[in-house]
Design a protein around this nucleic acid. Structure first.
Lengths: 344, 344
DNA sequence: GCGGGTCGAGAAAACGCTTTCTCACGAACT
DNA sequence: AGTTCGTGAGAAAGCGTTTTCTCGACCCGC
């Protein structure tokens, strides 16, 4: 006869009765409070063990005002970048006994703010990846989300650290690499139009063009997934470019696959670069030249920033900036002396 | 002057005071209880809106005895299979207003049971992916985890639906495909030794061997990631097999990459198959022949089973079995008439 | 005009825990 | 021996909701 109360689960009261003490004492023992007589503590522990008592975290959260959980808002769980952030965050947080609640906004950015708010209220803090959210909306909700850590966004709101990858520098490095190989006609296969990180890449390219006026850089519309790259084959070939900067590794892989189907040789005919260095980038054929961002580590850092915020060491959390590292592999090579359209 | 109480956040009490009613009435209004005078309801709503009141989910959970959250235990967030399950689960659950709490056991199966229990207590139910957990341990903890949905495992515990992929059938289909192409020397690049799904594949292969005594099937030790496949190149070439069944797509991709480096042509010299049909399988070179399992859909089904359990429609939840679909692509081709070791 | 029934809202209990407050008891000090 | 202090455990007050219980007021019919 163990069961009690409406829920059926055994609670602190059951242990108290069995050990012949009060709820309070059981609570003290369970929390390692040493003001309890060792004999009684032992009796309580025995009772708890026998009943297999496990404190109800909801009651505990209510009393303590904390949930030991942090939320993460991601625009698309199918994207390896966000998967990696999630992974890094989850593992780092687990080290400190925290759990992760996910909110996949599924690219419906109109709901992002509401979803973020809901997630935040269930947790002790929020990590926000919302590349499409407008700056205005972000500024509006940021204060109500504190403790908040931003990924690839910044805000004027005080006390909100940002972890941003320097996509602008990365794309410049890639472009320089291609120019170094003799390419003079480049094309950028862009990402989602209103995405923040696409904006940063465009800024980087603008800087690059200023430094290399002789190099042609065509802009091609795109997206962020395989299909984008695959569908872009014609546009890429038509452009006459010999060096293609794909928005990210996924797009590059799609493009690689499409070029292969057309019999276009990479890197002999065309050089292709990606961005992110997802694990798969080492295993494409040819292997993919890309800009490596330590994205799992970024997730981990997100937790460290969050932890500092939660512990109120928040006075000097500046956020940090990640420099992508050029990772030269097989998909880029010397430009042909002269090449006209392979196409048609 | 809005702030109140220790937490600083505004609560139901603040709204009650502002609207000049009791807590109870505010609660009724917020929950759409129509036994409230429309005028008062309007006043409450106005007050709530003005204060930007949002109910505290923790208090709500305590009172309601539910959290609107379900937990998922995964052995490795880096594995695309679990990412896909997570994604399917998360999106399906979101449709019904539920959230997902993740517990990444990070392959430390010794902690799996504890982690599962903790996750379960914070949630209304648990989806468990624990391929390495022993049957004994699973049986022991299963009852305490209800409502519970199992992925790729079964249990004798009543009321626990299982969603299992028929890996045995899948691997048989792949082997038959290779035999149909004229291959007579096959090799299986195995997965983690104690993994449940690897066991199912081995059973499938045993059945295949019984049906095709003339076909040689070598067993090669392995693992579940890129590196496994990459490192296995020598063993594969030494085996003299012309048809390789890799444990999954990741292993197959690693192998493809390793073979490419050695100048071994796929599928001319060796045919390679994967398993799972992860999105990347369409974008390898050559594209990967594999057994497609609708893994995101499986995550979605996990939610539907869970929902039935939570709503106590549980009487007849049998779980389901997924048949992989053979997906023939470029990595498999006719066996050469005669081939001795390319190697050395 | 008055009792029974209904309706609507406030008071209070419940959810399961933590923590402060309170008090009884024993030890130590004068 | 009497007073004080410290110690340890129980009582009770939160934490923020929901929901039952209760009761006043109002409407209706007799």
């Amino acid at each position: 006869m163990v069961r009690k109360s409406a829920t059926g689960r055994i609670g602190i009261a059951d242990v108290a009765v069995k050990a012949g003490v009060s709820h309070a004492t059981v609570s003290r023992v369970m929390n390692g409070n040493f003001t309890v007589d060792p004999d009684i503590a032992a009796r309580v522990r025995a009772a708890a063990a026998e009943l297999k008592y496990q404190p109800n975290p909801v009651g505990r959260s209510l009393a303590l005002g904390k949930t030991d959980t942090i939320g993460i808002v991601v625009p698309d769980l199918a994207n390896p970048t966000f998967q990696a952030i999630l992974r890094g965050l989850s593992r780092a947080a687990a080290q400190d006994g925290y759990r992760i609640l996910i909110a996949d906004t599924f690219e419906v950015s109109s709901e992002e703010a509401i979803l973020a708010g809901e997630a935040r209220r269930r947790c002790d803090g929020l990590v926000l990846c919302a590349p499409r959210m407008s700056d205005a909306e972000l500024e509006e909700i940021a204060p109500s989300l504190h403790p908040l850590v931003l990924i690839n966004r910044t805000t004027a709101t005080a006390g909100v650290p940002s972890l941003v990858v320097d996509y602008g520098q990365g794309v410049q490095d890639l472009a320089e690499h291609l120019v170094g190989l003799g390419h003079t006609r480049l094309a950028f296969l862009a990402g989602p139009a209103r995405s923040a990180s696409n904006g940063l890449r465009l800024q980087g390219l603008a800087a690059f063009k200023a430094a290399h006026p002789q190099v042609e850089v065509r802009m091609l519309e795109g997206g962020s997934d395989f299909d984008t790259g695959h569908r872009a084959v014609d546009a890429v070939l038509d452009s006459g470019a010999t060096g293609i900067l794909a928005f990210n590794d996924l797009v590059a892989m799609g493009l690689l696959s499409g070029l292969h189907e057309r019999g276009v040789k990479v890197p002999e005919d065309i050089s292709v670069t990606g961005f992110d260095d997802i694990p798969f980038a080492r295993y494409t054929t040819p292997t993919l030249t890309t800009a490596a961002v330590p994205i799992t580590e970024l997730g981990q850092q997100a937790w460290h920033q969050m932890r500092a915020l939660i512990r109120k060491e928040s006075s000097d959390v500046p956020g940090s900036r990640y420099q992508p590292r050029l990772e030269v592999r097989g998909s880029t090579g010397p430009a042909r002396a002269a090449r006209s359209a392979v196409h048609g």
